[in-house]
Every structure is written in structure tokens, then in C-alpha cells.
Amino acid sequence: MSTKGVEILLVEDNAHDAELTLRALKQRNLANRVHVCRDGAEAIDFLDDMSEGGGGAAPKVILLDLKLPKVDGLEVLQRLKRDARTKTIPVVVLTSSREEPDIEKAYALGANSYIVKPVDFEAFARAVSDVGLYWLLLNHPPQ
């Protein structure tokens, strides 16, 4: 699996949510270089490969679900932010949970943003595309 040129890393176990996310991004032409990981372990492996491979730029943003099989989202977040090579990658938590403890933990671990997925598709699509636009086009990461 090539890690080269990935702009958005989507960590999402629900295939339908992933499809809807990709569709929303696609409508804004942001879905060209999206990589989808279906659980926490896969996400960690992907990032490890990327770092060890030495090549390629890091993703410009990671969209991270919290409830994931194997390794849950908060743990992935913790490892990302602990690792010097990955800690500057912006992480947007994109989850169904609006429980206060989750939000607090996510920010405490260094999440850059926390977005509750709306049930309403239009709202969802708007949220995803706004996130994509912001982090990919407006945000200026450290070089």
C-alpha cells in the first residue's frame, strides 16, 4: 500500500459512513487522495509505514472516528500525538458521540477539532466538506 500523496486519512469502521464521507468530499473535489482505514490498528500500521518509509508527505488531515474495532479512536489519537513524527498532523474527531467525557478526552489528547456527525445527510455532507476545505485549503501546516 502506498502512502504517498495521501491528503486525507479517513479512519472509519462503518462502510456506509465512509461512503457518505467520501461522497461529500468528492462533491467538493477533495476525494482524490483519500485513504480509508477500517479500524484503529490499520490506521496505526498505515502511519507507521509512512514514517518508516521515510518517503511521502504526511496526510494533511486525519478524520478519526472514536468507536473503532481493535484499537479505539482515542488510543489512536494518543499514539499519534505522542509520536514526534505524527504529532503535527491535524486530527479531526468525526464521531457520533456527543458525550462530554469523549469531547474532553479528545481535546486533552490533542485533537484539533471535534465534530459530531449529524444524522441529517445534508448537514453531514456540509460538515465533512467544510472540514475538508478548511484543513486542506485554508490551513497552513508547519513545513
Binding site: H16, S96, V119, F121
Partner: peptide, 9 residues
């Protein structure tokens, strides 16, 4: 909410 979102989406 996930399946609901899928239905709606």
C-alpha cells in the same frame, strides 16, 4: 445514529 445516517444519506 450510524445506521440512521446511512438510511437518510
Amino acid at each position: 445514529r450510524a445506521p440512521l445516517r446511512a438510511i437518510h444519506g
